[in-house]
Structures are given as structure tokens and as C-alpha cells.
Design a protein around this nucleic acid. Sequence first.
DNA 1: CTGAAAGCGCTTACAG
DNA 2: CTGAAAGCGCTTACAG
Lengths: 353, 353
Amino acid sequence: MKTNLQTGVKEIARRANVSIGTVDRVLHNRTGVSKVTKNKILDIMKELDYQPNILARRLASKKVLRFASLIPAVSSETKFWDAPIKGIEMAEAEIKQFGIVIDKYFYDQNDKQSFVKQTKNILKTEVDGILVAPIFIEESLAFSKLCNLKKIPQVLINSDIPNETRLSYIGPDLFQSGHLSAHMVNYLIKKNDKILIVNISKEIDSYHHLLRKEEGFISYFKNHEKKPTIIKTDITPNTDYKSIAAKLTEILAENTDVKAIFVTNSRVFSVAQFLEKTGLQHIFLVGYDFLPESITHLKNGVIDFLICQKPQEQAYKGIMALYQNVVLSGDVEPTYYMPIDIITKENYKSYRN
Amino acid sequence: MKTNLQTGVKEIARRANVSIGTVDRVLHNRTGVSKVTKNKILDIMKELDYQPNILARRLASKKVLRFASLIPAVSSETKFWDAPIKGIEMAEAEIKQFGIVIDKYFYDQNDKQSFVKQTKNILKTEVDGILVAPIFIEESLAFSKLCNLKKIPQVLINSDIPNETRLSYIGPDLFQSGHLSAHMVNYLIKKNDKILIVNISKEIDSYHHLLRKEEGFISYFKNHEKKPTIIKTDITPNTDYKSIAAKLTEILAENTDVKAIFVTNSRVFSVAQFLEKTGLQHIFLVGYDFLPESITHLKNGVIDFLICQKPQEQAYKGIMALYQNVVLSGDVEPTYYMPIDIITKENYKSYRN
DNA sequence: CTGAAAGCGCTTACAG
DNA sequence: CTGAAAGCGCTTACAG
């Protein structure tokens, strides 16, 4: 702490024979300093390996920094987005003493327009960094471009957008997570068994997300010794329990020999509900996310494995990445794949989202 | 940030009709303030819900805070303790701007006396918080008592000490992790299969640690439908490859029908090495920790599952818990069980220690 | 028992 | 283009 005894702005000012005000100007790359003075100061800073004292900076600065978060609202359909909110709030509690405020925006994940509307609302405000879960590719890309023009750093969570100049992506490697799911299913099935893949989603847009997992899953069994038969069904756009039950009834009637089901998202709890009600618990079931409804079915054995990637931590890390970049001017990993966690009956108790 | 405009020491002083120096005295519970004044100030602080500004406090304070860490040194035997060091360093980088310094002490995990010696060295210094991995129960308890007398908060990682007045334990629930291991082995074996448990340790003292996992493992198969036969072997005190190979050769000659081996610590890589050399890769193998040697064997299929509990994060969280308690005067969970991670061929790439 | 002043390392007007 | 001063919310001697 008191290491910068001889290395603060004061010392730089002394050596450069200028006032600390001038040092501050070059420190923040402001105008109104002669080339000569500027270079002299820059040289001294380099020589001293000057590291600004963040405490002093934030204490002295009047300016509060504003981050915005934009994620889907928690819906009756799934409480998945509860976890990211918690992560954001945790990060906020930690960095608010640095004068950072986080404005939380939400959109309806079944309504593109609500997303667009919120991006506009955000850009109306003064904002120094944005955390976003980009469900809609096109719209997210457009938003991202606007942010880049305004030089606002963005961190993406949950799913990535290709070809993006975002500051960082923090979330799953979707393909790899499908691969792992297949690996777990592999422990459950025998040779030549039949596997059913189930995609459940209202919006066709969130599909690429699920399809990527599906690809990973299928690729695992390419040329695999167990040679399972893999069939799939898409349940869309109606995703209430009734619609799901109807579709599953139909497909399982045609395929009475299905031994395992892989659900590509958190709606695995609906499938579990169905299997339980219809007495089909013997079918192995693997799906996603740590939701209470799913845990119940993990406990009673209807669900065998849940794959989860700490949504709370994704959001927490996302905000902290912004903090790292904006406040500390530090480097941030452009892509941070979250570990792919396997949750079973035996370890769910100590799982931390 | 600028929320405490009307809520700082200044405002308290104004309301109480005293100087800020006096406010500071009661804030830090120092002597030299009359009961009456003290209570008046206390009341006002409560009324204002006063939250000290940590930035200002650390900036103004001359005192640097010292934390000490005491963990086993990395040995040629296992590089396990590399990860905690990294965690400590990460935390250090994050909090050094708050004027915190971490002194790192190491001991030989095969030598009690080296542990005792280091605890003495630590207590010779001015220290405001201690992180310790307590391998030796007795000695750790004694150390802990001394710390309590000196009112130095201690955080334990890796393994807990029963009946302890530590600030917090951050690490595995050993029994539960043994349970999960059994659960994973269960996916690999058939009815009536034979399972071998292997404990490898030089020091009998680190045994309680391994035995707890063993208990969890065995308890899983109590009254289990698969009714496996479980045998065990302890390899101690010599734990070089030769001794391990000799012992395994012996026991596998007597038990040619062993279908799965559970190794209770990171030495699983030695067992893997043995199985590979002797062409016994078909025996399923489950063990602990994310070491490079083990990952190699995970990749080539000799090891089926590794159980790991983020040693780096344990240490990181341990330091941050001290920071939370000492710097921010915040609450800390007395027991924080780390999630029990399952590592396979398919997800090791994204695993974060 | 209490107060007034200096200072931590910065930023922010304001003056020239 | 540059400097001098005030201030952020605390802590730390020092004086009384």
C-alpha cells in the first residue's frame, strides 16, 4: 500500500517539474498538455512503473460508474434466470464501494421486440459497461455494433455471438457440453440402444443454442462402438406441460424401445414430470440446469444427470470482468468457458450455482 | 459512492457536537471517550446506519494488514499444492491495493515438526489473519488455540479440524465425496463385482482424511442392490512407484476378479501408471484431483473419473474470507463445502481448479 | 477526555 | 498550456 511513497503523481510531478494537475491530465489522456511535457511525464511514468492507486482515484472521483445488465426476466416457465440476477447482485455488493451502480434491465425471452426496446433504453443512459445474455442473434449483433460505436465494453454470458468485438464471453462451450452429456448417457445405455433427443423451446431463435448442444451430443456417438440409434423431436412453439406430454406420448408410442432421453435445456423437469406420471421412470434421463423442479426429480431418480454451468457465477464473473476492465483498466480473457458440471443425486447438495 | 454525503464521520460529529477524532475513537472502540459521548455517537451511527467507507479507511491508514498462509510445500511426490498457491496469489493481487500483504509459509507434509516450526515462525510476526491447511490434527489444534488467544482469525482449507473455533472451513465434505465416488463407480460395475479401495500415504496422520472418504464410499454400497464385494489395501509408509506396484501386484494376484479400483487421493496417477504398464486398463479406475499426470491417464482411458474440489479456489476463497472478515468486518460462513466436481475425458478441458 | 490539523493519493473545478 | 487549491472520507499523531 504505502509502496507508492515515491511513486505517486506527486513524485512524477516533482521529477517532471510540473504540477500534479498536469500529471493527471496525461494520465487520463486529456487535452491541454504540450507534446514535450506529455512525453516527459509519460517517460517518467514508465520509468517508475506507475500504478495508479485505485482507492484514491475512486475516492476522489465524483463520477459514479454505471453498468447495465440485460438478461431475460424470470418467467413462470422457468426460474433459470434467477441465478444470474443473484450473481449480478453479489458483484454489485462487492464493487459498490468503488462507486459503481448497476442498472438491471430485463426482457421477455419469447419476445424479440422487448429485447430491442430495452437495448434502446440502455443506450439512452450514460453507461460505462454492459452485461448481456444475447438470446436473439440478429438483434444482439445490432446492439453490439452500437455499443462499439459508443465504445462501451460488453460482456456476454450464457451464449456467445460469433464474430463479435465484445470484451469477453463467459459461459458454456455448448458443443462440448453436448458432448459430455452424450458421454454420461453412454454410461447408462447398452449396445444398440435407442436414444431420444428432445428440444423444447418457444422461440425458434433460441434454437441455435440448443442445436449446438445437439450437435455435440450426436458427434460423440459418431463411430461409437455402442452404435445407438438416435432420434429427435422438437417441441415448439407450445411448451406448456400438456403440449410436451402430448408430443412425448406420441413419439414414445412409436418408439417403445427408447432407453434414454436427452433434453437440451432446463425443461428436462417437464419431461421428468411426464415420465413419472406415466410410469416410465426406467428411461434414463439427462438434461440441463440446477432448478428446484429438476433437483426433485434427481432425488427421486427420474433424472439421472443434470449438466450445469453455474449461471450465477457467469453473471458474477461478467460484472467483475467489466469492473476489471473499466475500473482497473486490466486485461480480460476474451473467452472464458465455464466448467461443465455434472450433477447427480450424490453431489447436488454441495452444488453452487 | 457519494451516498454517504450526509452520513460520514463528519455528519456524525456534527450531530453529536464533537470532533471527527472522537467519532473515530468510538468507531474503533478505542479508550478515552466518556460513556455519555460514546453512547450518543453510537446512537447516531445506528440511526444513520453508518457504513464506513473502506476506500477512505484503507487510504488513510498507515497500517498494512498481514495475512499468513501455511500449506504443504509442493513436493516431487505430488504437485497438488501448486494450485492453492495460485489461489493465494490471485487473491493477493486482488486485495493488495487495500494494503494487504500475504506471507507464505510452507511445511513438509511428511514432517510434523516442520509444521510446528512454521506455526512458531508465524506467531513471531504481527499477523492479522491466517490461512492453513491442517494436515496434522494435534499440532493444528494446538496452533489454533494459540491463534484464538491472540484473537487472530484462522481459515482452514482442504480438511477440517473438529471442534474448532476457526473463522471458517472452506473445502470438501470428505464423507460426501467418498459417497459420490461410489456413485460413479456404481455406473461402471455390474452386480456382485469386486471393488478395491486403495489408500496411499506416507504419514499415518493424513489418514483420517482418506479414511473419511473411504467411509463415505463404503456406506454408499451398504444395502445396495449391486452387492459388490469391497476389499481394501493401505500402502504406507513407502509410497514410491515401486512399493505401490509391488503391493498392487500382490493384491491383484490374489483378487484377479477386481473390476474397479477407488484410490482415495491424488496418487491415483501411480495406480493408473501401474495398470497401464501391466495391461490392466480394463479395470475401472476412480480417484482424486486434477493433476497433469492424472489427466494424461484420463485422456487415454485408464482413469475413468477424477473427483476434484478446486484446490485453487479453496485457497482463493480462504484469503477472501479473511479479507471479508478483517477488512470489511463482514460475516463469513463457518463451513463452506466446495462442490464436488466430476471430471471425465469430456469435460476436463474446461475444468478450472 | 477531546479537538484541530495534516495527510493518504488521487480528481475537480477555477484561475491565469 | 499550466498551476494552486480544495476536497473525497477517513486515520494519525499531537496538543491540551
